[in-house]
């Protein structure tokens, strides 16, 4: 149906001749814009309803005093559904540690939460298909589990700021909400997010459309294609200090894939931008000593680089 609407708009309303590069680009733009927006609104709303059942207070209770492995796996999975913005990283970290959530388990949560988010997944799904989205989610969660276990094994509790251990919080109850409240929350959340998101989405699809219609590919293939052994390394090192949500990433990713960048390199780049960033380091400095921040960033960076090479080898 969307296909037919795009046909109608392109060939009848705008009046472009079928088969030209311009018509191709316009058709792609109309089709993708409608498809992605429908996907986004529907899925963000559903995810928001699901999320309203997992307030951080509940996650904290589930994870408290959990053992390694099980704790890390749970934390990485809960990271996907627990609503959390980087502004709340400090109270969340203190709250977790204070409730007896092991340090490594807390990190599994902190890694998976920004990296595996529903927007990145939907956009990946819409633009590259569900297989790529699934691969991204699975690797993201696996990476969060593995990095958390490693950090846990290193016994770095002494590199948490001392005052954190002194804060006593006690029981916390999430605000009780009815199903109606949850729907209102989901509606507000969707509206809020779409307001922030739509320019990125339109620009992203626009870029994709241009690439689709016009751009030659040999240049990017030469530098970022599967045959350049340094592509993953360079992409990740560029991505680490950058900060952007999944949505902001997609325009760039879309353009690069269109020009022939290898998929493993693309996924690694996206992970490095969403998982860790300079602003996050500054926020975490409130609760962690530098040595632990370096360790955290180091382990995650190495993990992402491995993921990139792995996928370039098998995809």
């Amino acid at each position: 149906m969307i296909e037919r609407f795009a046909d109608y708009m392109t060939y009848s309303i705008i009046g472009l001749a079928q088969g030209t590069a311009l018509a191709d680009a316009v058709h792609f733009f109309i089709y993708d814009t409608i498809k992605i927006f429908l996907l986004l609104v529907t899925i963000i709303f559903i995810v928001a309803v699901i999320r309203s059942y997992f307030p951080p207070e509940k996650t904290r209770k589930i994870l408290s005093h959990k053992k390694q492995f099980i704790g890390n796996i749970l934390a990485a999975l809960l990271g996907i559904v627990t609503p959390f913005c980087s502004c709340s990283a400090v109270p969340l970290f203190i709250g977790f540690v204070e409730a007896g959530v092991p340090l490594g388990v807390t990190f599994s949560f902190l890694i998976s939460s920004p990296m595996v988010n529903e927007i990145a997944l939907i956009m990946l799904w819409g633009l590259f298909g569900w297989k790529i989205a699934l691969i991204y989610a699975t690797t993201g969660v696996t990476l969060a589990i593995a990095a958390g276990i490693v950090i846990g094994r290193l016994n770095m509790e002494k590199y948490v700021q001392d005052y954190v251990w002194k804060i006593k919080v006690g029981e916390m109850e999430a605000v009780r909400t009815s199903f109606r409240d949850k729907l209102v929350y989901a509606r507000d959340y969707t509206k809020d997010l779409m307001k922030k998101l739509w320019p990125y989405v339109v620009v992203g699809i626009g870029l994709g459309a241009l690439v689709h219609g016009y751009v030659p590919t040999d240049l990017v293939v030469r530098y970022a294609g599967p045959d350049n052994p340094f592509a993953v390394l360079v992409a990740v090192l560029i991505g680490v200090p950058l900060y952007s949500s999944g949505a902001g990433m997609i325009p760039i990713v879309q353009a690069l894939v269109g020009k022939g960048m290898a998929m493993g390199t693309v996924l690694a780049f996206m992970m490095s931008v969403t998982a860790i960033s300079l602003p996050e380091a500054i926020i975490l400095k409130n609760v962690l000593k530098m040595r632990l921040i370096y360790t955290f960033f180091g382990i995650v960076t190495v993990g992402i680089i491995i993921v990139g090479y792995l996928f370039n080898a098998i995809l």
Partner: peptide
């Protein structure tokens, strides 16, 4: 103040 906020919630 973080200590005071944490009396009530982890999400601001």
């Amino acid at each position: 103040d973080m200590q005071e906020i944490m009396k009530y919630t982890m999400s601001t």
